[in-house]
Amino acid sequence: MKVRISSERCQGHGRCYDLAPDLFGEDDEGYGQVVGEGVVPPDKERAAGLAVSNCPERAIEIL
């Protein structure tokens, strides 16, 4: 499983890096960024799902 953020849609609400800090971080303006290549280890799949379903802008995709 991999995650990706659409930078077109992301507005920096930060729900992703609140809920799944191992998978997402903030840039210096608060926009979300995936950590590394965005690969989700099996024990982080639940956190990834929470980030997706709580992003108000629907900016996170699971690939």
Binding site: Q11, G12, D18, L50, P56, E57, R58
Partner: peptide, 23 residues
């Protein structure tokens, strides 16, 4: 509630600049 895509801080380009501070 685990799934909560609420819009208290708005949506789109005007998303509350202060949302992290407010939280």
């Amino acid at each position: 509630r685990e799934v909560n895509r609420h819009v208290a801080f708005g949506l789109g380009i005007h998303r509350c600049v202060g949302s992290h501070l407010a939280r």
